[in-house]
Design a protein around this nucleic acid. Structure first.
Lengths: 200, 200
DNA sequence: CCAAAAGATTAACTCGGTCAATCTTTTGCC
DNA sequence: GGCAAAAGATTGACCGAGTTAATCTTTTGG
């Protein structure tokens, strides 16, 4: 049963997240204090930290949902990992998934600009990538080749997505960028040598 | 002329760094406050921050010296980047360079254990790697292929070095690990496709 | 409708990091 | 050699992120 309590909790969560992102976009991450955010959402500072582990997480929780995704995708099939992740990336491009960098909604662009241009947030993003690399490497068997491949796959994804975002943030539309985005993805994934064996 | 001022400055710098690392190794990074370190070196907290930009830098300044090294090495020659960096890594292995992970001096091992097992320091290490990746990518021309290659080269180095450190930190000597270290380096660098052109 | 538990609030605290003001040392000049 | 001014070092006071313990409010199961 979805009690009143749960609904209120959800409301507070959303109020904090939305207030935080709005304030960060307006004044800049470093210029807004957690007290400002707590006040905007009508809660106290300790309450804010009950909902979000850190100031950064007020922004990053959206991306946090995708943590471990590459490993899950690879673990879900028996097809070669490179093929699976390339295919997944192309589907993401076609669907204009924000994680591919090819979503040109102003809100999405502004959100990623905030993340990429705020050092603390960019660092946090890389921490997520490191976690993804570790879990993917484990799924691939943990060998030297697995570690190398996991790192290469994730840096490929990251570089492609960033280049797409950069193109859109300098005025291009997603539709305009799409051909180059697929061409670059083709080129990048073609550079990756597949894993000989996936067993440990 | 090497004035009194400069000598004193160097003394304070060394006193802070040595006190910090000794205290961190003894009690753990998070259990030592910057006030403890300042007190141990007989200076005030603001003075400490004149010498080191952050608590993390009290540990990381040693590694900071190597920042931008891959880019410099590649820029210094006209030989293919992959060959140059592979060669440099093998020379590092032979010389037991700490950055290759193949130095088994207890102090060096303890230092890297501190860095690798302290989240804040490990994160900082990755920030350095990101900077190296950016500068190397620029030297390689800044194209998509350059970005991909820079990322692959640096993650290769990182993964090889970490595996070497792991072997030594579980009891092996550098001499015992050396054959496997070179074999793994061979395998890893062989996986890297060279850059077709280095021009922009 | 009530007792117990879950959650929110507040005040006070710790720690990393910064700043304005003060004090010390070096140096250029006579 | 001595002195004034500039350069640099030092410090106490402060700010913001994050935590903790005690208190208070609200919800919900019986």
């Amino acid at each position: 049963m979805t009690g009143l309590r749960e609904r209120k909790k959800q409301q507070t969560y959303d109020a904090l997240s939305e207030a935080a992102i709005a304030l960060f976009l307006k004044h800049g991450y470093d210029e807004v204090t957690v007290n400002d955010i707590a006040a905007a959402a009508d809660v106290s500072k300790p309450t804010l930290f009950k909902y979000f582990a850190s100031k950064e997480d007020l922004v990053m929780h959206r991306i946090l949902d995708h943590l471990g995704e590459p490993a899950r995708i690879v673990a879900a099939t028996t097809a070669p990992p490179v093929d699976v992740l390339r295919e997944h990336f192309f589907q993401g491009l076609a669907a204009r998934e924000p994680t591919t960098g090819l979503n040109d909604h102003p809100q999405v662009l502004a959100y990623y600009k905030l993340v990429f241009t705020t050092p603390a947030l960019a660092t946090r993003l890389r921490e997520f990538a490191d976690d993804d690399e570790k879990t993917l490497s484990d799924v691939l068997g943990g060998s030297l080749a697995a570690e190398l491949l996991a790192a290469q796959l994730l840096s490929t994804r990251r570089i492609l997505a960033y280049r797409n975002w950069l193109a859109l943030s300098t005025g291009r539309t997603a539709a305009q960028r799409f051909p180059a985005a697929t061409a670059e993805a083709d080129e990048a994934f073609a550079r990756i040598q597949p894993l000989r064996s996936r067993l440990h």
